[in-house]
């Protein structure tokens, strides 16, 4: 994409990184984002390894760009992201992005993901993963989740389970996220749709490693999300 994000827009963008036991993977992610000039809200989700220490090491290198919040106990990716969404307003942001901290998402996609927000073409963006790169089980679970999101939340998107999303601060104030776990992906899309927030889909890269494949929406998670979606109907 030829559009270039200005330094001011990058400084007004906060990337939320929920992190649970990511000590071995998070550092390159943080540092790449910092080098690109974006700010970060990193939420340590009660990790039992030394994730928090690793994040602090990165903060020593980029003290002004990194803000750390830590949940005292593990509450799930949904709660960690909600914490980031709430905390970000302390820093007067213009754009808010949330992405995975395990290296599954490429920081290089950040510019592309916020471009529709900066250009004013959309107020929310979801990063869509290429289906061909997805392992079969993940692909199947994702197809099922897309269908369920369509049935229960009445929104048709290409990738309902993406963890890479961006939203303007004004739009973020309108949405209400309560999901604890991976339901947050579908809930974000539902809230954006219900509040008539114009949204766009942007293709993103996904880097699958055995470690990143162990996390995310698998069949068991998909079943849990289904139960929560049914519960939300009442």
């Amino acid at each position: 994409m030829s559009f270039e994000i200005s330094k001011e827009d990058k400084q007004a963008t906060y990337v939320i990184l929920p992190a649970y036991n990511e000590a071995t993977r998070i550092q390159p992610v943080i540092e790449e984002i910092a080098q690109m000039g974006y700010n970060m809200i990193i939420v340590n989700d009660g990790s039992s390894d030394n994730t928090l220490e690793v994040i602090k090491q990165s903060k020593r290198k980029y003290p002004d760009q990194i803000h750390i919040f830590s949940l005292i106990i593990n509450r799930g990716v949904g709660v960690a992201t909600q914490t980031g969404f709430d905390a970000v307003f302390m820093f007067n942001p213009k754009y808010v992005v949330s992405m995975d901290s395990d290296g599954q998402h490429s920081a290089k996609d950040l510019d592309d993901v916020i471009t529709p927000l900066v250009k004013g073409e959309a107020q929310a963006v979801i990063g869509v993963r290429p289906l061909k790169d997805m392992p079969f089980t993940r692909n199947f679970a994702n197809a099922v989740m897309n269908l369920l999101t369509r049935i229960f939340y009445k929104v048709n998107v290409s990738d309902s389970q993406t963890g890479f999303r961006a939203i303007t601060a004004d739009a973020l104030k309108k949405i209400d996220i309560n999901a604890r776990g991976y339901l947050i992906s579908s809930e974000f899309i539902r809230e954006v749709n219900d509040n008539n927030i114009p949204f766009a889909e942007v293709p993103i890269q996904t880097i699958y490693t055995p470690e990143t494949q162990a996390k995310g929406t698998n069949v068991v998670e998909a079943f849990k999300i289904l139960l929560q979606m049914i519960k939300h109907q009442f």
Binding site: K56, L71, I73, T83, A87
Partner: peptide, 23 residues
Amino acid sequence: LQDEINKIVKEVAINNEITLDDE
């Protein structure tokens, strides 16, 4: 109870940003 715990855990985290000065 889960929702109440989440609220407390979030509040505690937001009110206690981790700074390097703490160390």
